[in-house]
Computed example of a mutant assay.
Amino acid sequence: MNFDSVEGFSGWDFSYITETGRMASGLLSWSYGSRARILMNEASSMLDMGTGGGEFLSYLRPFPPSICATEGYQPNVKIAKERLEPLGVKVKSFAEDTKMPFADQQFDLILNKHESYSAKEVRRMLMNGGDFLTQQAGGTDCVEINQMLGVPLNADFADWDLNSAVAEIKENHFDILFQQEEKSPQRFYDIGALIYYLKAIPWQIPDFTIDKYQTSLNTINQMILTKGYFEVLQHRFIIHARAI
C-alpha cells in the first residue's frame, strides 16, 4: 500500500488529496460560502470563528470594514496571521469557547464553519439583530470509517445534530431563519488518501496509527482495488440565526 505523510499539511487545506482527485465529496443542497458572502455584503463588523489557516476566509473578499478571526489550534494561528493580517483581518487565538477575546455586542455577523462554539458566547458578542451562520459536521460524520476500524464514535459528539444545535441556539435568544441537514457521499480512491485524511483529523480515530490498524486498512484497500473507491457519508447541517 502507498502511505502518505501529512508533513505538507498546514492550515485547513486538503488540496493534496482533493485537487488530485484522490478524495471527492458529494454536493449539498446549500452553499455555505454563497450565504456567507450575502451576509458579509451587509455587515459592518464580523468574526470568522475557527478560521484554520485562513484559506476559506481569504476567498470571501471584499471584507466588511471591521473583521476579526479566531483559531484555537495553535499551529494554525501563525499561518492564519501570515495569510489574513495583510488583508486587514485581526487574528486572535483562544483557549475556551466560553471565553472569547471580544467585547459584548462587538459584531453584527459571526461566521462559523465546522468549529465548536458556545451559543451563549456567540449571543454575547452579537449585536441585537446580528446574524450567526454556522455549518457543522454532525456527530455521525464518516461513521463508516469508525465501523471499518472498529472504533466507536466519540460519545461526547455522537448526538450532535441539527435538532440539538437549533434547540441550544433558540435557548440563547435567537430566531432561526434557515436550517437544513443532509448526508452526502465522500469517496477515497486510494488507501493513502484515507490515511492522509485520518492523520489530518485526529478526532475521527484518536489513536490512529498505520501499525495499529494495519488489518483494517488492508481490508479497505482490497475494497478500493475491487470497487474503485471506499465510500463514507458526510453528516452536515447549516443554521442561519438572528439575535433577538
Rank of each mutant, 00 (worst) to 15 (best):
L149R: 03
V166P: 11
D161S: 07
F188P: 15
N172P: 14
N163H: 09
D161A: 07
V143I: 10
K120S: 09
H114P: 14
V166T: 02
L194F: 04
R123C: 07
Y196R: 10
I195Q: 04
G138S: 11
K92D: 02
L153H: 02
D175H: 12
A103M: 07
S93W: 00
E115C: 14
L109Y: 05
K183A: 08
G192E: 02
V91I: 02
L126V: 09
D175Y: 04
L177M: 02
D175N: 14
M100H: 01
G150L: 00
F94G: 08
E115H: 06
F157E: 11
G192F: 03
E181M: 01
V91D: 00
D104W: 01
L194Q: 06
S184T: 15
D108K: 05
F178W: 01
L162Q: 03
Q136F: 04
D161H: 06
A103V: 07
K99E: 08
D190F: 02
C142L: 04
V122T: 11
S184K: 13
F188T: 10
G88Q: 06
S116L: 13
F132Y: 03
N172S: 07
F157T: 11
V143T: 14
D104A: 05
D156Y: 07
L194D: 03
G138V: 08
W160V: 12
R123Q: 09
F102V: 14
V151K: 00
A167S: 15
D161M: 02
L177D: 06
P152E: 00
N112L: 04
V166H: 02
Q135D: 10
D159E: 13
Q179G: 08
M100K: 02
H173A: 15
Q180P: 10
P152G: 03
A80M: 04
T140N: 06
K113C: 13
Y196T: 12
G130I: 08
Q105T: 12
K183Y: 02
A165E: 04
H173S: 15
E168R: 10
E82S: 15
D175A: 13
K120M: 06
L149M: 07
P86R: 04
E82T: 08
I145V: 08
L126I: 01
I145Y: 04
L111F: 03
M148D: 04
K113P: 15
S118Q: 12
G139L: 04
L149T: 03
G138T: 07
K99V: 13
S164I: 06
A155V: 12
D141T: 05
M127K: 13
E144I: 04
K113F: 10
D131G: 03
V166G: 10
I110W: 00
L111I: 06
Y189C: 07
I195V: 08
K120D: 04
M125L: 15
A165V: 09
F178V: 14
R123A: 14
H173E: 11
A165M: 06
L162K: 05
L194T: 04
A155Y: 02
V89I: 12
R123P: 09
I169C: 03
A119S: 14
L162A: 14
F102M: 10
N146L: 12
E115P: 08
L126P: 09
I145H: 01
A167Q: 11
S116T: 13
A167R: 12
A80T: 10
E121H: 09
M125S: 09
D131L: 08
D141L: 13
Y197I: 15
V89N: 05
Y197C: 12
E96A: 11
V166D: 07
I176D: 01
F157M: 07
A95I: 02
Q179F: 00
